[in-house]
Amino acid sequence: MKNKYLIVIMGVFFALFFTSCHDILTNLDNETEMVTDSLSYKELIGTYTFVPKDYQAKILHIETKDTIILKITSDSLHTTKSGGYSGKYEINRMILVKHINYTLPYKNDWYLDFLKEKNILIPNILNFNQNIKNFSNISYEIRKDTSGVLHIIGVTGDEGGEYNEAFEVFNFKKTK
């Protein structure tokens, strides 16, 4: 009898722990560092997933239970004038623009290049062409976590706004 109570209490404890500490565990997992060396397109190509946090879901007009899948492919791969690479990407819900409610599946071009100049904050240039052509209000940062797994992080800021600082709009983690 006592063991049953113990199991129930333990169950409740773990349920509470995982519910309340999910963010902490996720953040630990997501500690990343900017990739400052030139990234090859072969490293970039793959499938990435993103499960939004509350505030991200609010900004992106999606649900926290949604899993966003981004596929960066080598379809139509070609080199550009400046020596960068371009190809096709697919996303199951278009969330690569802040504050624009356009969450249908989407397909367009990706672009990767590298900046060698001094005083550059984000040396690997990643661009996802949008439905509004060449529009972007999110900076894409390519980062690696402590396990060496690639992340594509969208960063924006709202100086003087609700958040009044930089924050991650999304964090896609490479899964394969």
Partner: peptide, 16 residues
């Protein structure tokens, strides 16, 4: 240069 951006194109960057 690579015609990925054109007239009307925008970009933004937040300095952290």
């Amino acid at each position: 240069q690579n015609s990925i951006k054109n007239v009307g194109g925008q970009d933004s960057l937040y300095y952290r």
